[in-house]
Design a protein around this nucleic acid. Structure first.
Lengths: 205, 205
DNA sequence: TAATATTTGTTGCAATTGCAACAGAAATTA
DNA sequence: TAATTTCTGTTGCAATTGCAACAAATATTA
């Protein structure tokens, strides 16, 4: 069963799962306080946030539609609480880790399909994480950019790439200084590796 | 049910799951050729390997006991095949993704507990990945080292840390040049942040 | 539409990092 | 035990990167 299908048949059938709406700025969950809580983002956008020792807001991860999150995915290593805060209106499915594998009293079919849906989401999550790790492992900005462009290009079977987010966000994603990244993009253009128009990149190799 | 428990009750009960032994140097699985295959490493060590365009061997990931892997975790983005190769004698549980959620003909209890075991492994995998991403996201070697030391220290509630692997491997894990990392460790010692004796680090802050 | 906020693009400069090369220590294998 | 491999530790140097600061272009909001 698909995740969007899943969302339709909830609430009435199964007491163990809740669907909630959050507005921009609302705290969806906190990892230390609400351990064992698993959330599926049916729609909207949210950030995983930590305030460091100096009080700086630190965005650890950005969640989009169909992302799954909770303390079970991200142990709180430091002593600082982690928050998930909605940055747009969010529809969220919430349940407890321990309830997943136990059949609910109604023995509802929803609960059965929940397990395979969750496995699917978790695996997608793993793929996304592995891709990011591979990019972050590259030693230079140039390698990070080229690897990233290659992945996008291979995915769409197209040498023309539309970047899925802003260059500022791309720098965050690759975890490099934005201005240094811009400089490297310029170098790639000047050396004839890529062409660029706005958020569209063309691979020339 | 625990994963090690799981390993005991296999083979006879369930035709969908195989246990195999591999020796050092053996190829356990290949991602493009054997898609949908999921492997659980019951014991031993193995590397996820890719040969790049120039034929260089590239170790993408190192697997240890209880790690779970397969193509469903790591889509093959480039056109190069990915191999998992045993670096020590390995005991491996092998099955197909599509068989997980389907009850096997014998309707064995093993198969039921398999699902929760897999979920547990996959979640552990996610935690490991998230930790690594957080470390790789740090902009300097110093931050990477201190964050890593802090995580280990918090985990053991101890300012004395025994590094779980060699400094060479640590540099690989943090994806930095080994000699540059050694230099930074020396700086941290000279500036009084840490003390070091072999593989034992003491945090002085 | 005007005002405000965000993103893009650029540059100089200082700091960090990777690379290469080496020697000695420690571990592994024959 | 000897031979070989891997790991540790160090350094000079060149290349890359982050930081800071700025102007122009877009996008967003009032």
């Amino acid at each position: 069963m698909d995740v969007s299908e899943l969302a339709k048949n909830i609430s009435d059938n199964c007491i163990k799962v809740q669907k909630k709406i959050f507005l921009s700025g609302d705290v969806i969950t906190t990892y230390m306080e609400k351990r064992k809580q698993i959330c599926i983002l049916l729609s909207g956008k949210a950030d995983l946030i930590r305030y460091d020792l100096k009080g700086n807001k630190d965005i650890i991860e950005r969640f989009n539609q169909n992302d799954i999150f909770g303390e079970v995915f991200h142990h709180v290593n430091t002593n600082n609480e982690l928050f998930v805060m909605a940055t747009k209106k969010c529809e969220v499915l919430i349940f407890l880790y321990d309830d997943i594998c136990i059949k609910c009293r109604q023995n509802c079919s929803f609960h059965t399909s929940l397990i395979s849906s969750i496995l699917e989401l978790v695996l997608n999550n793993a793929i996304t994480q592995n891709t990011r790790i591979e990019l972050l492992s590259k030693r230079s900005i140039r390698e990070k950019l080229l690897s990233y462009f290659n992945i996008l290009s291979n995915k769409s079977f197209n040498k023309n790439i539309d970047l899925p987010f802003s260059l500022t966000s791309l720098a965050d994603y690759l975890s490099v200084d934005r201005s240094a990244m811009m400089r490297e993009i310029r170098n790639l253009i000047d050396e004839g590796f890529i062409a660029k128009q706005g958020n569209r990149i063309k691979l020339l190799f």
